[in-house]
Design a binder for these strands. Structure first.
Length: 373
RNA sequence: GCGGAAUUGGUGAAGUGAUUAACACGCCGGAUUGUGGCUCCGGUAUGCGUGGGUUUGAUUCCCACAUUCCGCC
């Protein structure tokens, strides 16, 4: 089935939306956060642990799975869900972000993008059609259009050309798309230019996608610019379709962008921060490598009911991180993902109560105020 | 007791008669945003066993002492 989005209500004082999405694997409330599992696994976590974090949709990556193990392997295994033993919804990214992070400008042509296989050096060409074909085979629940994510700095002229190409790529992908169980999202680009964002959004809406993503953020821009780009994009997207802001996961950015009308987020940060010894808390990000936690026998957060906080102390987790034991990264991943998912839960509550601006004020006061240990 | 060698930070160590004592690990901080998972970026000896001496100048040369190691009695 196609994904179905229902807008339940818009918060009284802002553009924040409370909604529901129906998927092949159940219904989920929005705003929501999707953990990232690039290589068909959320690093260090089992599917059972993810469920315990209350994860809904998770993200996997077309580019990586194409190179290894290859979409045919996953197809023969019975699709991504069966392959990785995840019986929840999966969204696959198109490889568009790898255009940004791996390709040089000269590698991008109308036809597609040239890559070097990172494992064996082979020259590869990823096209909009190829990306969709791979995603059809992976059998994820939501596929993304192949786009170009433009970083900073850039010229307006370049962004203009890039947006037109991204629109042509979106159309080409949609034409070959043929998995009835899967939904397809278009991606709004256009950098910080309102007219380009508008143009891109309006053209995508004409093509009638199952949902819309906002791309081109979290690539080194300032927070103000990011929020502006989100406003310029949401403004021209339909009320009755879900909006997914790609790659954003800083807690304050989630709060700010929910207020601007975003429904779904994804980010590698909770798991990457975990691997590097950091924990997200109500009172800001803490670094468990810091000496002051050596004999801190309290949990990361008293208010958190994740598995890590229920059973382990900062001192112990610090020891695991210092000793490079993977259990430390696992406990912190559980905590950080739980933290972000719980944050979206609180935001949904604030939308229900029409007090999200008060929530934001309180959030900022705690997160950037004096840190409590 | 005699002879020889060594002594540089938390650790392993490089080094030179004279600008800030190399490098690595550790330690202390910081970064991380649609993930090329053990990464990146900073900081970290006002000091070269102790005491004298030579010299314009000594961690570097000389002497004594201490400690450690090796060999011999």
């Amino acid at each position: 089935m196609k994904i179905e989005y229902t807008l339940i209500k818009t918060e009284k004082n802002t553009k924040a939306r409370l909604g529901k999405i129906k998927t092949n694997y159940g219904e989920y409330d929005t705003p929501m956060f999707m953990p990232v599992g690039t290589q068909a696994t959320v690093k260090t976590l089992s599917p059972e642990e993810l469920k315990e974090c209350d994860a809904g949709i998770i993200l996997a990556n077309t580019y990586h799975l194409w190179l290894r193990p290859g979409e045919d392997v996953i197809d023969e295994a019975g699709g991504l869900h069966k392959f990785m033993n995840w019986n929840g919804p999966i969204l696959t990214d198109s490889g568009g972000f790898q255009v940004f992070s791996l390709a040089k400008p000269k590698d991008i042509t109308e036809e597609g993008v040239k890559f070097k296989n990172q494992y064996n050096g082979d020259s590869l060409l990823l096209t909009p059609e190829k990306s969709i074909e791979i995603q059809n085979k992976l059998d994820s629940d939501i596929a993304m259009s192949f786009d170009e994510c433009v970083g900073f700095p850039h010229t307006r002229e370049y962004v203009e050309k890039s947006v037109e190409r991204t629109l042509r790529w979106a159309k080409r992908g949609k034409e070959v798309f043929n998995n009835p169980r899967q939904s397809l999202f278009g991606i709004v680009q256009g950098a910080e230019f309102e007219d380009l964002r508008r143009h891109c959004a309006e053209e995508l809406v004409k093509m009638d996608f199952d949902g819309y993503s906002i791309g081109g953020t979290s690539v080194g821009e300032s927070k103000d610019v990011q929020y502006q780009m989100v406003e310029y994009s949401c403004k021209y997207l339909p009320e009755n379709k879900v909006r997914y802001l790609m790659g954003v996961g800083d807690p304050i950015d989630i709060v700010e962008n929910v207020i601007r009308g975003v429904d779904i987020f994804d980010c590698v940060s909770p798991t990457r921060l975990a691997r590097h010894g950091h924990a997200l808390t109500k009172y800001g990000k803490i670094n468990l490598k810091n000496a002051k936690y050596k004999k801190d026998f309290t949990p990361i957060s008293d208010e958190c009911n994740c598995y890590a906080c229920q059973h382990y102390t900062k001192s112990y987790i610090k020891h695991l991180i210092n000793a490079e034991e993977t259990f430390g990264a696992r406990l912190l991943s559980i905590h950080n993902i739980s933290y972000l998912i719980n944050l979206t839960k609180e935001l949904r509550e604030a939308i229900k109560n029409d007090n999200i601006l008060e929530y934001r004020e309180e959030f900022i006061k705690n997160y950037y105020g004096r840190k409590e240990d």
